[in-house]
């Protein structure tokens, strides 16, 4: 046995019972520093035993019991346990609602994005704005005009339906493809 192994045994010895080991005792007989560590470990173990075996005294246990009983005497034991099936149903319902809500929100965001793209196209010099200029006597090359405002003005000017602007754009796109 070497010193490293011996020290490992000594470290454990302080806190727990270690079975007798002949090679360990033989090493102690030959190594003075490990022997000194052994005597220290024995004293350390005595301190641990002292801590373990010293019972802290509970002064006036009757008073403690009385306090506990007074505290609990305010009412009967009430317990409510949520049935497991109900919990699972609630979780399943929450998941379904989350998915439906998420899907709906996705649809709305997609529509808004599409409308925003269309609004961007209504800018000075674009073919769409040129077409609308032809369709209306209004000068609608105004910076910052919204799509809904454009539709509203077209409706007012020519009595067309609000969808007319989209229809004209579609026609323009088809013409450009040809």
């Amino acid at each position: 046995m070497n010193c490293r192994d011996a020290i490992e045994i000594l470290d454990r010895m302080i806190f727990e019972e270690v079975p007798a080991n002949v090679s360990f005792m033989q090493h102690l007989n030959t190594c003075s520093s490990c022997y000194r560590a052994y005597t220290d470990a024995l004293k350390a173990r005595e301190v641990m035993n002292l801590v373990r075996n010293s019972e802290p005294m509970l002064r006036d246990p009757g008073e403690l019991t009385g306090n506990i009983m007074a505290a609990i005497s305010k009412g009967p034991v009430k317990t409510f346990v949520v049935p497991l099936l109900l919990t699972r149903l609630l979780v399943a319902a929450s998941v379904v609602l989350f998915i439906l809500f998420g899907y709906e929100q996705y649809g709305i965001v997609k529509k808004i994005s599409s409308l925003e793209r269309q609004c961007v196209e209504i800018k000075p010099g674009s073919r769409y704005s040129d077409l609308l200029q032809q369709a209306s006597t209004m000068n609608i090359n105004e910076a910052g005009i919204s799509f809904s405002e454009l539709e509203r003005r077209l409706y007012t000017e020519k009595g067309r339906t609000p969808l007319s602007a989209l229809f004209m754009k579609k026609q323009l796109d088809q013409r450009n493809k040809k």
Partner: peptide
């Protein structure tokens, strides 16, 4: 309580 208060206190 009387049975276990001492070990609990320890």
């Amino acid at each position: 309580v009387e049975m276990y208060q001492q070990p609990a206190y320890r």
